[in-house]
């Protein structure tokens, strides 16, 4: 019998638990290279109220089993997204999750208001990893109060499910997770990238023009798993796990730790077909191990 890969998360029916993470996969764009309808859901690059130019290059540095990026949330702004990208993205069958970012609470609120007028959006992901310009550039997600303010502002304007995407660059991720849930977040995505840097010894300069960047890829998987595990112990809402996933067994590790679905980011950057391979391998793994449904793994970690 074919194993059942489907999962349901905050009312979203996914035919498998694998979706791209925001910013790592061209949506729209990659329909040119593959059938996007094989994915569990579609998550777009974070959109802000106004267009953002992004950081100057170099924006990427290779690291051990991973990479640093400093794209700076380059995006054409929510109006452009609605007029140009959304009509294309609506044609695909997997649920569409729109990632919203902003530099003030008001920007999140206004972007949500504009998106609310549109059909074809299944849920929002709130990227609280951007600098909060009203708090000296500290990321919203680094403070429980700022996270709560952003989530509450979006919550007030939508009945669509909200996933708040947490940053690992905090002392206690559980505290931030609880704040997001209290403010009305239906689910959580974790983790975003870890703040890092790379230095070119010959030039005695940082590799990234922005000096600092976000670390991603297999190198961060243990940190991401730990975050998912800790948060899953503390909150009841569904979790989407992300950070360094590049194989079917990685997916199952995140489900065991407490995630109900996963996002693949950096693995797509090395191989655009990574998710399709992971989904095929997942099905094969379950069949070989006589597991009827992938859901059997969710939160099923044995700790003693």
């Amino acid at each position: 019998m074919k194993p059942d890969l489907s999962v349901e998360i905050c009312g979203l029916k996914l035919k498998n638990p694998v979706m791209p993470s925001s910013g790592s996969f061209g949506l729209p764009g990659y329909e040119e290279y593959m059938d996007l309808n094989g994915l569990g859901a579609l998550v777009v690059k974070s959109i802000t109220l106004n267009p953002r130019l992004g950081n100057p290059p170099p924006r990427i540095a290779e690291t051990t089993a991973g990479m640093l990026n400093a794209v700076g949330i380059q995006n054409p702004g929510v109006k452009w997204f609605i007029e140009n990208d959304l009509p294309l993205l609506k044609r695909f069958t997997p649920p569409l999750i729109v990632s919203i970012a902003g530099t003030t609470v008001e920007e999140f609120a206004q972007a949500t208001e504009l998106l609310e007028k549109e059909e074809g959006i299944a849920a929002y992901e709130i990227n609280v990893s951007c600098p909060n310009i009203e708090a000296g550039g500290r990321a919203f997600g680094m403070s429980a109060a700022a996270t709560q303010a952003v989530v509450a502002a979006v919550r007030k304007r939508t009945r669509r499910p909200i996933f708040t995407k947490l940053t690992p660059n905090v002392t206690d991720i559980v505290e931030i997770a609880q704040a997001a849930v209290e403010a009305g977040s239906d689910g959580l995505t974790l983790i975003n990238t870890l703040l890092g840097m790379a230095i070119d010894v010959k030039l005695r300069r940082p590799v990234l023009a922005n000096v600092l960047g976000g670390l991603s890829g297999p190198a961060i998987k243990p940190v991401a798993l730990r975050c998912v595990y800790q948060v899953a112990q503390a909150v009841k809402v569904p979790i989407i796990g992300t950070g360094g996933i590049s194989s079917a067994t990685d997916v199952l590790e995140f489900l065991l730790a407490g995630a109900s679905a996963v996002q693949v980011g950096t693995a797509n950057i090395v191989d655009p077909y990574a998710m399709l391979k992971i989904i095929a391998d997942l099905e094969k793994y379950l069949a070989e191990n006589n597991v009827a449904s992938v859901r059997e793994y969710i939160g099923a970690l044995k700790t003693h």
């Binding site: 061209g26 764009g29 992004g54 290059p57 540095a61 794209v71 380059q74 797509n268």
Partner: peptide, 17 residues
């Protein structure tokens, strides 16, 4: 030339002004 990630237009790291 610019440093690249995906090579396919999906990650926006290879910025040219």
């Amino acid at each position: 030339e610019e440093r690249m990630g995906c090579g396919l237009g999906g990650c926006l790291v290879c910025a040219c002004r």
